[in-house]
Computed example of a mutant assay.
Amino acid sequence: MNGLQQYQRINTQTSITDADPHKLIQLLYNGALERINMAKARMQAKDYEGKGRLISKAIEIVGGLREFLDLEKGGDLAQRLASLYEYMERTLLEASMRNDITKLDEVANLLRSIKDGWDGIREEVVNQQQAV
């Protein structure tokens, strides 16, 4: 298992090094969703310490997504996303305190919806970056 974890860590580091800003956000969405799914499994296994660490990491990632927002350039959309990310952070904390899988699922579904939209604009963003 240790070898697999080292491979995953190296693979993640390589992905981050090679990533453009749009891809970095995709990696954050993937990381948050992965941590939430892992926390759900830890919760079901009654490993509350592991669940707590994973949810804390998911909260950190969502907080990072919120911090990446440019509230000046992003206008109303950025403001709404900031509010949604804050809601997700609170909901994840509540899920951890109450061992509530439905709250984890709620946040995962919200993240997936945003991620789908973000993934959908990938080609447009790459074309804009190449034009600059």
Rank of each mutant, 00 (worst) to 15 (best):
K40L: 09
D20R: 08
T17S: 11
S113D: 14
A45S: 13
G52I: 01
L104A: 01
A19M: 08
L71F: 07
G74C: 11
R112T: 14
K40D: 12
R122W: 06
G75S: 05
T12A: 09
E123C: 04
I10Y: 14
E60G: 10
A108R: 01
H22L: 09
S83R: 15
R112S: 12
D70T: 09
D119Y: 04
T91N: 03
S96N: 15
Q129V: 10
K46P: 05
N30D: 14
I25R: 01
M43N: 00
N11C: 08
R122S: 11
Q8I: 09
A32M: 04
E49M: 07
H22W: 10
I121T: 06
D76G: 05
A58E: 04
I36W: 02
L24Q: 11
N11F: 11
S96G: 12
V132Y: 08
G63R: 00
L54H: 02
G75K: 04
E106Y: 07
Y29C: 06
A131H: 13
L65F: 01
V132Q: 10
T17Q: 13
E94Q: 15
E86I: 10
M38N: 12
I55D: 03
D18F: 13
E124R: 00
R80Y: 13
Q44D: 08
N37A: 11
Y48S: 06
G31A: 10
Q44K: 14
G117A: 03
K103H: 07
T102N: 12
A39N: 05
I55Y: 02
R122H: 15
A82V: 05
L104N: 00
G75A: 06
Q6K: 11
E67R: 15
D100R: 05
A45F: 11
L71E: 12
S56A: 14
E89K: 01
G64C: 06
K103M: 14
E34Y: 08
G63L: 00
A19S: 14
R98V: 09
D100G: 03
G31H: 04
R90S: 14
D20Y: 07
Q13C: 08
L92G: 03
L104Y: 04
T17C: 07
E49G: 03
R90P: 00
L27A: 00
G63I: 01
M38P: 04
G120E: 10
T14D: 05
N37S: 15
I114C: 05
D119K: 01
S113P: 05
K103F: 07
E67A: 15
G74M: 08
D119Q: 03
Q5N: 11
L81P: 02
A32V: 08
M88F: 05
K51P: 01
T91S: 05
L93I: 09
N99C: 09
I36L: 03
L4N: 06
K73C: 10
E106M: 14
L93G: 02
I59N: 00
L92T: 02
V126H: 05
S83C: 08
L24G: 08
G3P: 08
V126T: 09
I121Q: 10
D47I: 02
R42T: 06
V132C: 03
T17Y: 12
Y29V: 08
E34T: 09
Q6M: 10
A58V: 05
R98N: 14
R80T: 12
